[in-house]
Design a protein around this nucleic acid. Structure first.
Length: 405
RNA sequence: GCUGGAAUCGUGUAGUGGCUAUCACAGGAGACUGUAAAUCUCCCGCCUAACGGCAUCGUAGGUUCGAGUCCUACUUCCAGCACCA
């Protein structure tokens, strides 16, 4: 679980102060499964007696972490404030579940940047950054030059801000280890060098590999439109569970290592069982439950499993969804988008219901899906987007459901 | 500041003033499967129950019967030169 670090081995860290931090920018209303990989490492360290601190990027989030394709749009301050709250909440709940830890320090880098004077910053910090090295970074090269999208001074300076964070936390709290995703290694290392230069002390960075889909070779879960979010408002618990359940045999081993608390022996045992009959998808099931339980709690993960059993073919499946009991429908509504039939006096058209529940982007899309036979109500394919007068389950495609109760 | 280029879907792209803006990737659906992978077929701006309607090639004007394409201004980016160090 190490991409690149700046120390000899974990044993070396054990000699030290046992304080570390992880940073996250409030650039969205929720963390994604990309961030979750870092959170799992944080939890692992916390279980072994290390003391975690979360840094929320109230300052850095106002600038935006430069990506290699192009400049980001600035987020409004209100949006940043909202995102901050949501992310801190997620961080706390995930780490406390995965590490049985109640108290987690949270700091906001805006608290110390708010009062920093620009000239002081250039004098004390900027002076220690080499332009040659700054220009040498991959994303800068990708942004400058023929056919490139360009880069603003604000984004260019991002890593100075992040570097200063590390120095600040080192001085104020004695934190001498930073955990980050591999894409952040450069930014984190700049802080490490600052500490060395200014205070003559040692600090380290532990970056974990970006999770790559072994089939497509693409970065995992962050491809813009279809990110998998930790917030149930953005990705339902059911979809979250299904996402892990649908992983390929090639990917599942690596994902278990990164995203579950299992020790190597446990992983081996599961993979052994999995390989004896792959069609049972034992590894995927284990992975899906484990991750869902950490993010959403064991109870909701259990509901997601129940819903999966009833809604898909196999043991215990209910092919006619109208036979699902009202109690079950209510329960499934906790992990699936749901809509109340009774709350609408007028007959609600199927198309409207699907669009308002967020299952389908537009009514035109619904029409296309119906034409291709993708939509069914209680197991019966529908021919037109007529009114919807029964309770039960609407199914769109293979694994999108709308509970009507 | 000067000169020359560039801006087309989530991404990368094609596009002599003329019919419905091309292709690929990503994404979605169907078939086949193990809710996997691979493969095949279809879809992939918005509205409408439907016939159909309305948009859209950085922004705003203009020329033209007709503009993604030509002209003008603006915005942003790139390159070279100059200026400044």
């Amino acid at each position: 679980m190490v991409a690149q670090n700046t120390f000899g081995g974990v044993a070396e860290l054990d000699e030290r102060r046992h304080k570390f931090y992880l940073g996250a920018d409030p650039s969205a209303a929720s963390l994604t499964i990309g961030n979750l990989a870092s959170l799992m490492l944080v939890s692992c360290l916390a279980r072994h007696g290390y003391e975690p601190t979360l840094l929320i990027g109230g300052a850095t989030g106002q600038i935006g972490d430069p990506k290699d394709t192009g400049e980001r749009d600035l987020k409004s301050l209100e949006e940043i404030a909202k995102n901050k709250k949501a992310i801190v909440e997620q961080f706390r709940s995930v780490v406390s579940r995965a590490a049985d830890l109640e108290k987690i320090d949270v700091v906001d880098n805006y608290d110390w940047f708010r009062d920093i004077n620009f000239i002081d910053f250039l004098r004390n910090i900027g002076k220690h950054f080499s332009m040659t090295q700054l220009l040498d970074r991959e994303f800068v090269k990708a942004r400058i030059g023929e056919g490139a999208s360009g880069i603003s001074f604000a984004e260019f300076s991002y890593s100075l801000i992040q570097g200063y964070d590390f120095l600040h936390l080192f001085r104020e709290k004695g934190i001498d280890l930073q955990v980050c995703g591999a894409d952040q290694f450069g930014n984190c290392a700049s802080g490490m060098h600052l500490i060395k230069k200014l205070d003559g002390k040692r600090a380290d960075v532990w970056s974990i590999p970006l999770v790559i889909d072994p089939v497509s070779g693409k970065k995992f879960g962050k491809s813009e439109g279809n990110a998998i979010w930790l917030s149930p408002k953005l990705t339902t618990v059911f979809d979250f569970y299904q996402f892990w359940l649908n992983q390929s045999d090639e990917a599942v081993l690596g994902l278990m290592k990164t995203y579950t608390r299992l020790m190597p022996e446990g992983v081996d045992a599961i993979m052994g069982a999995h390989n004896s009959d792959r069609s049972m998808r034992i590894a995927q099931k284990s992975l899906a439950f484990g991750v869902t339980a950490v993010v959403h709690g064991a109870e909701l993960a259990g509901v997601a499993i129940e819903a999966t059993k009833k809604l898909f073919d196999g043991d215990g499946a209910v092919s006619d969804f109208s036979k699902i009991s009202d109690a079950d429908l209510k329960e499934f509504g906790r992990v699936l988008p749901s809509i109340s039939l009774a709350s609408r006096a007028e007959g609600l058209s199927l198309a409207e219901a699907l669009v308002s529940a967020g299952l389908v982007a537009s009514k035109g899309e619904v029409r296309r899906l119906i034409t291709s036979g993708a939509v069914s109500v209680n197991g019966v394919k529908v021919a037109d987007s007529s009114e919807m007068a029964v309770t039960g389950v609407v199914k769109v495609g293979k694994n999108k459901f709308l509970v009507v109760r």
